[in-house]
Nucleic acid binder design. Structure first.
Lengths: 324, 324
DNA sequence: TGGTATAATGATAGCGCTATCATTTCGTAA
DNA sequence: TTACGAAATGATAGCGCTATCATTATACCA
């Protein structure tokens, strides 16, 4: 079943059939109807591969998420969902790539979760293939559009909240990976402390695997080793949930005994008690923006996008003032 | 940068270059080395669209998840992650489709979350395009491979657990959608009650939107309207979490006052207190199995797959015996 | 009525690869 | 040496579509 068959049946050339499908306004209504009847009769289904080869457009965006990142992570899910919403409006599909092999059946790339070296690597990959790349994260590279959450500002803001509530003995539980976001959140933590005149080196930073167990263990360590502690900043909500579990288990009250703040705000709040005060990263929206950015690039835009989105403080129930 | 360029540089024909890439054993080592040097020098990158057109194989599987289903749902992501694991081993990519438009850049389809009518619809779609279809769900259609969780058995098992613990006044909170799984879980609930000699019509079934708020509201209604109730079966863990929140808020103890069981077992357990006894659906594994099934089909297998997987009871902390 | 602009259609040539079959080269045995 | 089968390579023809340019039909105005 090819255009040619339809063309024969309706007595026109293949290109006219192609026009009826892709640009009907270029075809006289009478001809169009004739062709449409033939399309209907033969139950014509287009071959998108052939179209992609001829037109050099395939209608697919690749979302590159390194295989090291768990796809069931809520961060990833929200990101992907945001991308999906935009792309489906523009009649693009998307595929999820877990490694950079030979395939590149796509018009452009969206990437996330990369280390600095990996950014260089994927840029080379996409550049060789002459495809645009947009990034969730930040990079100085002038050819890469990128949007990132301002992790430093967010961490600073939420630490500041603890300070504003009179806390002076504050600990941080960070993720045990050397990624930009962990470094930046630690930096925000330190900045807030310094501005409040507190020596950051007096405030312990524990690292743990980014799951509830990790947060649990880290909190136990803080309780054991830092009894003065009244406030804890967890670099992710997942860690905060584990930390909260540890507090409940050991009979500590949140926030009466210990105030707890997290970072992410991806909907755990519905699931957990008490709801943890946190910083919301608009991951879904960033996914949307990146998808839009990539599509404008594909449509010929040359507008460079470099954004740093300030995350938003979400006040909930896990912070209390210290009585002076 | 085409095969032809490489062919010219290395002094062979394009087809020989193609062989070096796709079937090196057919090429004499000396020639092969010559061509490989040229590939290297020109930094050749294959065009997979052209290959797909010529070979009628594209290396992509489409995962069809109707746009009505939220991608941030853990169920979906576990499913997708399982598929992803298998496909990446077989050098397939996958793309997520949210609607059935003209595109079908793929070798086969995996679908989930469909109503009966939608199954018919996607079957027609894939059949017209001569592509195999496998389904998470069940259908009588002889041309569709499918694997499903035995929702009835799971619901029956977990309701039985409440009954075994002496509960006689049991309510169910179900999802307010008319899908197979909601019907089947309600059925399992009824079957367990009947076998225990309890008239199901005396046990209220509340429906609610499938999120924590839905579970919360439903639980409040049960507390208000059914004071004798000591056990609640929630058709999803998400509902169970909302229900648990409602119980805590109103000062009820789990499981001392009310025993609670859920259905899903997709890892919420790490996040929530108390951990809710539930039924685990091996969604990740089903994703893997379906991907494997589809790949064997693509490799010419004619082995029909129709499976019903029994879910597994996960005992946690939310069920207590009633003192006789 | 003729001339010009515009609309409608068509002919042709790829897009970059692989399938198929044909041809050449080579090794081995008679 | 010749013959023959196997190994290696090549020529050719698409895969099914669209881009590009050329051509023909139609509309409109003077």
């Amino acid at each position: 079943m090819r255009l040619e068959d339809v063309a024969k049946l309706s007595g026109v050339s293949t290109i006219t059939v192609s026009r009826v499908i892709n640009a009907p306004h270029l075809v006289k209504p009478a001809t169009r109807e004739k062709v449409e009847r033939a399309l209907e009769e033969l139950n014509y289904v287009q071959n998108p591969v052939a179209r992609a080869l001829a037109s050099n457009k395939i209608g697919i965006i690749a979302v590159y998420i390194p295989a090291t990142i768990d796809l069931t992570n809520p961060f990833v899910m929200h990101f992907v969902a945001g991308i999906s919403e935009v792309l489906s409006k523009h009649v693009y599909s998307f595929l999820i790539r877990r490694e950079l092999d030979n395939e590149h059946l796509c018009d452009g790339y969206i990437a996330t979760g990369l280390l600095k070296d990996e950014v260089r690597q994927i840029y080379q990959y996409t550049h060789e293939r002459n495809r645009p790349l947009v990034l969730f994260g930040h990079t100085d590279h002038p050819d890469i559009d990128c949007i990132d959450v301002d992790n430093t500002a967010g961490a600073q803001k939420v630490t500041q909240l603890l300070l504003d509530n009179g806390h002076r003995h504050i600990a941080m539980i960070n993720v045990d990976e050397d990624k930009d976001y962990t470094v930046d959140r630690a930096m925000g933590f330190r900045l807030a402390l310094e501005q409040a005149g507190i020596d950051p080196s007096t405030c312990p930073q524990i690292v743990a695997e980014n799951d509830a167990n990790g947060g649990y263990g880290a909190m136990r360590r803080i309780l054991a080793e830092y009894p003065l502690c009244t406030g804890v900043f967890c670099a992710t909500d997942t860690l905060a949930i584990g930390a909260a579990n540890a507090l409940v288990k050991t009979g500590k009250k949140i926030p009466a005994d210990i105030s707890l703040v997290g970072f992410d705000g991806l909907g755990h709040d519905l699931l957990v008690r008490p709801n943890v005060t946190t910083v919301h990263q608009p991951v879904y929206e960033i996914g949307m923006r990146l998808a839009e950015t990539l599509i404008s690039r594909l449509n010929g835009s040359s507008h460079r996008v470099k954004e740093l989105v300030p995350p938003e403080l979400i006040l909930r129930e896990s912070v209390a003032s210290i009585q002076a």
